[in-house]
Design a protein around this nucleic acid. Structure first.
Ligand SMILES: [Mn+2]
Ligand SMILES: [Mn+2]
Ligand SMILES: [Zn+2]
Ligand SMILES: [Zn+2]
Lengths: 145, 145
DNA sequence: ACAACAATTGACCATAATTCTCAATCTCAT
DNA sequence: ATGAGATTGAGAATTATGGTCAATTGTTGT
């Protein structure tokens, strides 16, 4: 299986885009984490390697990385977009703690099945889906009393 | 069953808030539609009745209306919050057409069950949840070729 | 009905995330 | 190495939303 870097390189070439140093740097910091980071988080991380990089460049790089199929946007309703891995990671949903912000990843093939059933019934062609459950996590429940 | 207006009035009284003319006007236009409207949509509608109302007032009114349990926020990823009915309307999910923007409301008690199972397994206390499937709707599929 | 007090409004400013602009710089096929 | 075209970085622009505050309104007790 191709490495993420190779996937990006190929995507760039196939679309007449250039393999800039910045794009690779952004991809590198993105690959190093399994967290759900904002553009600003990633910006701060890339700056450690390349202090001259611009914030707009990180925005642009993440869009390309998404288009290449390596990342996916995730929105937890806190005001900024976040990114998570898409390549070599299976599709999942999120439990989001309203108290501490923790995000728990969950999978459910049964729900996927029911989603298919739903879209078929409405003759709707699904492209992507998202499910989030907001509430209180195990840890915060214990602390809360 | 109490009317939405009564629910709002009671919520206001119970919380030391005033029943202003503007809050009732915003509630009225919100109640008249079953669509998913933005604050700006609602602003334009209220202006027909009260051209002197301010945009910030509509923002503030919709927050109160949500807090009172009459409306719920819905985000379809197009840059602005939307609002939908919560009172006298059962919980549902959305199919969002990426071509025409149409939003189809769907219900699935089976999915709700599986969600419960998921949260229980993680000892997570759910407060609210949202599921959206993005794709191409029936009509756009036909037109598309 | 009225006065007193607190809440609300509307106009405008502030903020924050994201995108745009453009001259300078970089990439890459030749 | 070179030139055409893509990208970058800095800063301005945009957009949704929230904050400020003096003027106004709603409520409550008289
Ligand atoms: Mn995730
Ligand atoms: Mn709805
Ligand atoms: Zn928590
Ligand atoms: Zn459509």
């Amino acid at each position: 299986m191709k490495s993420a870097k190779t996937v990006l390189r190929q995507y760039l070439k196939n679309n007449g885009l250039l393999a800039s140093k910045q794009r690779e740097q952004v991809l590198n910091v993105f690959l190093k984490t399994e967290k759900h980071l904002t553009v600003d988080d990633l910006y701060e991380l890339v700056r450690k390697k390349n202090p001259r990089i611009g914030l707009a460049t990180v925005y642009r790089a993440m869009r390309v990385i998404c288009d290449a199929g390596l990342a996916r946007e995730a929105d937890f309703g806190d005001g900024s977009k976040r990114f998570e891995h898409k390549y070599k990671h299976q599709h999942h949903h999120h439990l989001v703690c309203l108290k501490c912000g923790r995000v728990i990843e969950v999978m459910s093939p049964e729900i996927e099945k029911l989603q298919q059933k739903l879209t078929k019934k409405h003759n709707f062609t699904p492209v992507r889906d998202t499910m989030k459950i907001f509430g209180t996590c195990r840890k915060c429940k214990r602390k809360g009393e």
